[in-house]
Design a protein around this nucleic acid. Sequence first.
DNA 1: CTGAAAGCGCTTACAG
DNA 2: CTGAAAGCGCTTACAG
Lengths: 359, 359
Amino acid sequence: MTAPDSERVRSGRRSDPTIFDLARAASVSKTTASRVLNGAPNVAPETRARVLEAIARIDYRVNAAARTLRTTRSFLAGYLVPAVSNDVFGKLADVLDEELRHEGIGLLIATSGWHPEGEQQAFESLRARNVDALVLSLSNDRDPRVAERIRSAGIPVVLIDREVKGLAADVVLSDGRRGVKQAVRHLADLGHRRLGVAVIDLLVRPGREALAGFRAGTEEAGVENVGEIVVEYERVDRGMGHEIASRLIANGATGIISSVPTTVTAGVLEGIHKAGLRVPRDVSVVGFDESDLASVISPPLTVIARSLEQVSRYASRLIASRLIDDTQPPRVENVDMRLLVRESTGPPPAPQAVAGQVT
Amino acid sequence: MTAPDSERVRSGRRSDPTIFDLARAASVSKTTASRVLNGAPNVAPETRARVLEAIARIDYRVNAAARTLRTTRSFLAGYLVPAVSNDVFGKLADVLDEELRHEGIGLLIATSGWHPEGEQQAFESLRARNVDALVLSLSNDRDPRVAERIRSAGIPVVLIDREVKGLAADVVLSDGRRGVKQAVRHLADLGHRRLGVAVIDLLVRPGREALAGFRAGTEEAGVENVGEIVVEYERVDRGMGHEIASRLIANGATGIISSVPTTVTAGVLEGIHKAGLRVPRDVSVVGFDESDLASVISPPLTVIARSLEQVSRYASRLIASRLIDDTQPPRVENVDMRLLVRESTGPPPAPQAVAGQVT
DNA sequence: CTGAAAGCGCTTACAG
DNA sequence: CTGAAAGCGCTTACAG
């Protein structure tokens, strides 16, 4: 009738039991309590049982900060990513979090907002938190300072679809080059003779690979490359898609490989409609990466797809194994990309009067 | 020519400078060094300058674990969320992360995968990491154990669109009830007389609010409520959307308010098309929450929208202020929701022969 | 199989 | 304005 409830309620934190309380509750030393906590083998079964019982009874849980201070391990991995509100990165983050939690590792996410300064800040903030390892979806893998920064952090790193010169790190690579080549062949097989491409910023590997794939593919298939548009990060939005559509259509493209985030590809589709054309009747479009968006757009997008679960699973395994032994040589895991044909691709509209070819 | 490069490279971690090194480098005591680090006022300007210079020179950064152990503050906030690969939660996470970083607070994300067990695990993992505060997007706010669990954590909590009985916590609420009522009125004004609704799981506030809004709205507008479908979390996918469409259409609905994640609403649209009907010619559809998806679906969705930035900003401010003073009474921040009319709503198809009304 | 003791890198009264 | 010392909660040789 006197003491306010909030007093008791809030007191929880102030008096969290320590390992000293646990030791006393189980009538053992802190050393033994610690051994049970860490699953050390050299503890008598009955002793162990007594400690376990005490843990449950007093609701003990180890203080992460103290453990980290002693062991220099935080059991935290960092994920540096441009933004989590993105088809691909959001999915990767979810799976990473789930996989790592199974290993007892928490995931600390830091977003860069696609900006170099944001990226540096995010990197520093992760580092300041003593993360044991880092998963990086960098927005620029050509910056020489990045390699230096990562190296100086002195912790294991896994790169996702990035290659940083002079850095020997584990990496998970998606074969976008092959995917794009496959897309070119698909369009060529349908009869297209004039193709255009949009790729993401060449500051990251997927942009470079897509471009290489497109060039190799068009050459192999004997098809005309009527335009390559590079989408810088700052320009990732639907408006950019409109621009891609109008420029490539103006060049006479009947097929567009839109190897950019789905938001942009959605804009490409809009742009095509705005120009009074229809997909795939007048122009065929291939998107990049599977997502809710891709399957819901009208018409459903033909995409170059991969298993994002696979990417995350590889990344978390690389991290887990490196946390155990950081002396192994760097490893590369490859994830396949292949064409998923839906309804946004079809035969070109008509024999191409535009091109001067007679065949 | 002898020492392998990796030796020097990796050594970074082993020898991170401590505050002792810093003190020596600046010729001051650890106490003074610490004062400068924490911006304490009682330090002579020249002394401070010397320490600052030393920090830069030896590349010193505080050890978060040691600081946390001493202060019992981790400068980490936890965000418990079903999944980050979700239009709404992904966006919230991005903004939260950005806002909190400005306050020097890191964001530790833990995903529940919509499952009760996942949620409990995620909660425990966050707690084990000594987060200073928690932002919660619970997948069930009716579970009485949740209140107890949160209380026993003994740290400030901000609920996003949830109300937990018996828990006095800060909360950010979106006025979905008003949004749905507005949508009903919009459809009624267009001439619709038979409306159906789909709402998210009633275990969370948005589901309950949407349902209440729909009932109140149809009653006020004198419009017939031809069906209410509750979408459980496990069923959030496009297939569920098909089911919603067919059931509501079977009931003669000419307007559907789809107050569920956009993925499901996309399925509703598909389902309508499958039934050989068109939007909005035969059936009008209102979605919930703005996203890339919503604006890209064909036809562009009329949605009940809010500013997710606003939601996150409120949440981070509540947290920041409570970290300074946790004795203030719980606060409620309200975020408006209003109808954004696009192309998925229009007049109903024809005078409704189905209903026995003559008017 | 068990325990006493040192020490991880900080911050914070306390004394001057 | 400055510093010596204690202690946060753990883990880990070391000794028995």
